[in-house]
Simulated scan of single mutants.
Amino acid sequence: MISAMKNEGTVPITVQVAYGTRGELRELLKRERKRRALLSADRQWSTQRLSRRFAADVRAAWRQRLAVMRNEGELLDTLDALAAFGVRQELKERGWDRPWPPYPAKARNAGRWPGAKQGGYPETLSFRLPASLENQARAACWHTSAPAIHELHNWHERQQLILPKRRSSPAGLDDALQVYGRLAAKVTTTGTIWRAGVRRGMETAAKLCAAPKPV
């Protein structure tokens, strides 16, 4: 079993997403970066006429403030921040934002999990998530999907014994496919969580961009 990862560090993520997602993200992040520039122009973050020591303190305070705003979803000016906030919200919505038992090494095996949907996501996104968040999401996906994954392995074994012996579709194949569909619907892959998280982050960023600017 793989034990829970440390909170420090990040993990690279690559996920297939719907067409148009990359373009929409570019515009949202561009607008959020402009909002960050406006926030940083506030007088409290100015380092003019300060000594090097006090200027360093102000810059450190600004970096800390940035980290808090990104973590709380008050500023989503980078893809990493947007995705991490969205994934946390997705886990919370599912009731999965809690400790999970360790997952087996095969949960990290390359390739799709049984039941994973194929197609429909022509674009690719790459970002980084906090290691603890990635670990929590993967553990949640595995433990909620494991019973269905086990049944899907059994399903494949049964079909492999039947199909090679027949030249035409065997009787009951439609029923077998319905069983497969019901089991597959119970599998939640990490890709599903990453896509949902990115979408939630985008929706939050759009609201932030549309909010009235403070006077």
Rank of each mutant, 00 (worst) to 15 (best):
A81Y: 00
L66I: 07
A18D: 14
R88F: 00
L38T: 13
V15Q: 02
R53W: 12
W45Q: 04
L79T: 05
W100I: 09
D77W: 03
A116H: 05
R98F: 04
E123G: 04
R94I: 03
A67H: 08
E32Q: 15
T14R: 14
Y103T: 05
K106A: 11
Q44R: 11
V11F: 11
S46M: 08
E72F: 05
Q16P: 06
L29F: 04
A61I: 00
Q89I: 05
A67F: 01
N7A: 15
S46Y: 10
T14V: 12
S126C: 10
R26V: 11
Q64A: 12
P114H: 04
G111Y: 04
L82G: 11
S126N: 09
V15P: 01
Y121N: 15
A60E: 14
A18V: 15
G111M: 06
Y19E: 15
D80C: 02
D80Q: 06
F127A: 02
A4P: 12
E123W: 03
R52E: 15
R43T: 04
T21S: 04
G95T: 06
V17G: 01
A41H: 09
N7Q: 15
E72G: 07
Q64H: 08
R52K: 15
A116M: 04
A83C: 02
P99E: 04
M69K: 12
W100C: 05
W62I: 09
A110D: 13
R26W: 09
R52I: 14
F127I: 01
A107P: 03
L82P: 09
P130Y: 00
R128I: 00
K106R: 14
R31H: 13
R98E: 13
